[in-house]
Amino acid sequence: MKKIILVLLIVLPFLAQLVVLPFVNRIDPIVLGLPFLQFWLFLWIVLTPFCTFGIYQLQKSQGGLD
């Protein structure tokens, strides 16, 4: 289970910021004053550190860090 979450957390930032770009490449809807593409990129500036933090915690709990 932990392994699946780990893989997911690693893959997610790449999927969100590279692979899905053709689908978020649009102006509408405007969210928080940002056109959608810009909002999406902004969102992942904030979410990527959470993925990293999750990975950090998982590795720590498994004693993989020193």
Partner: peptide
């Protein structure tokens, strides 16, 4: 235009990969 935004995923992912 928005081609300039390539710098955003670029640097966000750079730090992620660097981890």
């Amino acid at each position: 235009g928005s081609l300039a935004f390539f710098a955003i995923p670029y640097s966000v992912l750079a730090y992620f990969i660097s981890y």
